[in-house]
Each structure stands twice: as C-alpha cells, then as structure tokens.
Design a protein around this nucleic acid. Structure first.
Lengths: 232, 232
DNA sequence: ACTCTTCAGGTTGTCAGACATGTTGAGGCA
DNA sequence: TGCCTCAACATGTCTGACAACCTGAAGAGT
C-alpha cells in the first residue's frame, strides 16, 4: 500500500474544519457569539453531539470559548498552530537548509555538553531507529529518525533551542516522509543512513563536535545533492 | 466585579486537564494508545460523551489523534502552544546562543539572495530603529530592532526559516527587553548598536555574506561577553 | 509451514432523547 | 427607576442504540 490507506473523514473533523474556516475567513471575527448548537447542527446537517465535539476541538485549539447558557464565543482568529499549515507546504530544500543551519551547530554543542544520560538516550534512539528500519513502514522509520535528531539537539541543553526545534519537528517529519518516498531512500537499504547516524552518535559521545558537525553536514549535503540531481 | 464571576468548572474541562496532565507528565508518552472511552469514563467518573469531548479538545490542541476502531494515540507530548511558556523563563544566554546559530547563517543567505525590495525594507527598518532610538521607550526600541532582524532573515527567502524565526521572535523580544534593562545598553547611547546594524545592512546589500555574518557574530559576541562579565 | 478468510470482541463515530444548570431579556410591581 | 419573576434559549451531562472500523485468533486450504 504505497499510497496509504484511504479512510472516510469523520463528520466531526469536517465540521471542525468548516467552523474553523468561518473564523479564519473573517466571517466570525473575534468576539462573535456563534449560533447555538442546535442551529449549527441543523445548518451542518449533523447531530448536536457532533457539533459539540467540533466546538471542543476548536476550544482545544484556542479559537473559541464556551459559557453555559450564554453561548460560544470566538476568542482568536488564528490558531497558534496555524503556521505549521503554511510550512506543511514547505519545500524540502528549505527544510534541509534550516536543518543545515540549526542541527549542524547544535550537534557541536551537544558534543560539548552531552551527559551520560544523553549518550544513553542517543544509543536507545539509534536502536529504535534500527528496529523501525526492519519494518516496511516509512513513517515509523521517519519517526524514529526524527526522535534520534531530537535527542541529539536535546544534548545541547539549551531549552530555547529545544523548544524551537520542537516547533520545527512537524515540518521536518513531513519533509522526511516526502523525501523517503520521493528519492526511494529505503528501496536499496531499508536502514538508510545507519552508518552515518552511528558515526554521528559516536562523535557526540566522544565529545568531538567538529567531527559530529562534519558528519551531519555531509549527510545533509548528500541528501540535498540527490534532491537537486536531474530526475533520472 | 474586578475579580471576575465565579463559576463551577465544567466536568469536560476538568477531564481535559486530567488527561492532558497524563500526557505532559510522561505517563502517556508519544505513541501511547490511550485506554478506551468507556474505560476512561469509568476511571474519571463521567459519561462517555464527556470523555469524547475532552479527547476532542486534546485533539484540537494537537496532542492526540483518533482512529475509529483502533483507538486514540498520543502524537505530541507538549501542545505547540505550551513551549512559549517554557521559553518565557529562558535564560538570555540561551536566547543568544540560538541567535548565534540561526541568525549568523541566515544573514549569509540573506546576502546571497536579497532583492532590491529586501534592501529597501532593510533601509526602512534601520530608519525605524533610529526613529525609535530617539524616544526613551526601551520596548519600542527593542521592537524596532527585532523588526530589523526579521527583515534580515526574510531576505534569505526561506519560508521555513521565516516561520521558525517568527516563533522565536516573542522569546527574542523578551530577551532583548531584559538585556537592555539589565546591561543598561541605552544609558550611554540610546541608539546602541546603530553602527553595527548599519554595517550589517550594507554588507547584506553588497551581497557580502561573510562580512555580514562576521559583523553579526561580533555584535552578538560583544553582548554575550557583557552579559557574562562579573557584575561591577 | 504459509497464506488467506472469517469471526468475535473491542474500539470509535453518530444520533436521539432526557434532564440539569445557567444566561438573558421582557414584563410587572412597588 | 429599581427589583423580582419568569419564559425562552443556551450549554452541560448522561444514557442508550446502532453503525462502522480495527485487531487478533482460529480455521481452512494449498
């Protein structure tokens, strides 16, 4: 199943999206009191429970707030999560450029600052990546790969960097899934990049920031080069 | 009523919080399949609908995802909205370290890619910074400074980087306000750093990425050095 | 031994109905 | 004019029923 299983989109997700669009489009500006649940149910052609669940999703996203008896009010026009949507359409090359910028230096810091616990976490992450490589699931493999990189960045012990990288992770994940598919990275070798990742972790563990940075840069460069090669 | 009306907290909000805590505390790490709705309802002592609504709120917050028949899975340990709270307490040194990492390389890219419009925007931003320097308001000065740096990063024409930097801006802004206060950066010269910023923009405009990077690195280094100097 | 099919049990998705609780605004009275 | 009452409307919670989906085990066939 190379394209992924098809599933019907649950009504509550459709309803959530529709209501969300009413807000982001400006139809329901901040401060607006939404129509009541029974009205929305009739308008959307779903049950009241489905409307309630959709409104809860919007509340969880920080867009609306509900007061019993008074109604549901728009409290924000853009979900703080919205920028990842923009970045969902990001070019993989741009993603890799940011990786080059952030991660190559972060591994240098990680090599300087890693603790024993960090090294243990890195080894676990590498083992998990290898375990995920055994299965045929690209997404699981990417998740394990991303987790390894998160662990590397975490070893730099800079909470600002951790938080920022966490923001980057969804974009990175999507970029990697796309890349693995686009370049068929796992066709010849399901555990693509294992040697480089093992060497990276060894360099970090050994406190050799320059070598760690060089390894990662070379790895990212190679992938970028393949991405930019003429389609053959 | 200055303190706000007191209201009972709806059960669904309490349930949402409780489930959220299970995730953020690490009890349910990413990848965990949550207990079924009927089990959670029994555990929390509420109805199944209340559990469903709470789970929808968590889904809207990006923490869980649900698949009919399979279960509900944790997909993130921290709400994307949460990390700004963490970073509100970030050390200025950590903020500067990230600046060193991101911005120094970003200015190199900006120098390669800037358009005429970018250069015009940079000149405007510099003029705005100078105008803000005339006033006695530290915050306004910081805002103008941040805007200048945003314009520099934007000249790199990488949307992923733009988005990520935009996430960083609130943290940066807070860090700079604190720094200006802590080090009294504007006491002797209200337009602190003007020469360096003008030179930075000249270098970007001239397409000299190395010089731009060196200027910014020197500027950040100098500020870091002052931050780390013994108090006296 | 391996593969495919079937089925039971468990899970989420949706709807309807009933009742509780809270809010708001209109009307009436002092 | 201010206060009280009440009706209408709104959200909050629960229950029950059924649909649709997933997973793993068991059985049958090759």
């Amino acid at each position: 199943m190379p394209l992924g299983a098809l599933r019907p989109t649950p009504l509550v997700e459709q309803a959530t999206r529709r209501l969300h669009e009413q807000i982001t489009s400006g139809e329901w500006p901040v401060g607006t009191r939404l129509p009541g649940e029974t009205t929305l149910a009739a308008t959307l052609g779903v049950g009241r429970s489905t409307v309630r669940e959709a409104l809860r999703a919007l509340a969880g996203a920080g867009l609306v707030r509900s007061r019993q008896g008074a109604g549901v009010f728009v409290i924000a026009a853009e979900s703080p999560q919205d920028w990842p949507d923009t970045l969902r359409r990001a070019a993989v090359g741009d993603v890799y450029e940011v990786r080059m910028l952030m991660e190559v230096q972060a591994v240098g810091l990680a090599a300087q600052r890693r603790t024993d616990a960090d090294v243990a976490a890195l080894c676990t992450a590498l083992a998990d990546r290898r375990a995920a490589a055994v299965g045929g699931d690209d997404v699981a493999f990417v998740d394990a790969d991303v987790a390894l990189h998160v662990a590397v960045v975490a070893a730099a012990h800079n909470p600002v960097l951790d938080g920022l990288f966490a923001e980057f992770v969804p974009v990175l994940r999507r970029g990697l899934v796309e890349l693995v598919d686009l370049l068929g990275l796992r066709a010849a070798d399901p555990n693509h990049g294992d040697a480089a990742h093992a060497a990276l972790i060894d360099a970090v563990a050994a406190g050799d920031g320059k070598r760690a940075g060089d390894i990662l840069r070379a790895e990212l460069d190679e992938t970028l080069a393949r991405l930019r090669a003429p389609t053959g």
